[in-house]
Simulated assay, not measured.
Amino acid sequence: MAQARGDLDQFLALEARRPDWRQDPFRSAERLLAAGRLDEALSWARREHRGGLAYV
């Protein structure tokens, strides 16, 4: 909903509340970059992405 309303701050708050393995830091960084919020975009881009499949 936050995404549809264009509420970037609410979108980021919801993304931060997701479990680490469900977060998509690069998607958040792209949105911040498009909004001209470069420092925050860099911070999100530097987050470690924990997710995907693990093979044993």
Rank of each mutant, 00 (worst) to 15 (best):
R37S: 07
W44S: 05
G36I: 03
A16P: 10
A13D: 06
Q10E: 15
L38P: 03
D39I: 09
D20H: 14
Y55K: 13
R37W: 07
D39A: 15
S43R: 15
A41G: 00
W21D: 11
D9A: 00
P19E: 00
R5Q: 15
Y55C: 13
L42A: 12
P25T: 06
A29C: 05
D24F: 07
E15N: 00
L33S: 00
G52T: 06
W44M: 12
R17S: 02
A35C: 12
W44E: 11
S43K: 14
E40S: 03
G6W: 07
L32H: 07
E30P: 01
L38S: 06
R31W: 04
A41W: 04
R5I: 04
V56A: 13
A29E: 03
E40W: 00
D9H: 06
R47S: 09
Q3H: 13
H49Y: 02
Q10W: 09
L12N: 10
A41T: 07
A41F: 02
E48H: 12
D20T: 13
A29N: 02
L38I: 11
R31V: 06
W21M: 06
L33V: 12
R31D: 01
S43W: 09
R27F: 05
D20K: 14
R46G: 15
E40G: 14
L42Q: 08
E15G: 01
L33G: 01
E40F: 01
Y55N: 01
Y55S: 15
L12V: 07
A29R: 10
A41Y: 02
L33K: 08
R27A: 13
M1C: 10
G36L: 09
R37H: 00
M1T: 14
P19C: 04
G6C: 05
R22K: 13
R31Y: 05
A45I: 04
D7E: 11
G52I: 01
Q3D: 15
F26S: 05
A4V: 07
Y55V: 14
D20G: 10
A54V: 06
L38M: 05
D9W: 04
R5Y: 11
L8S: 05
A2F: 00
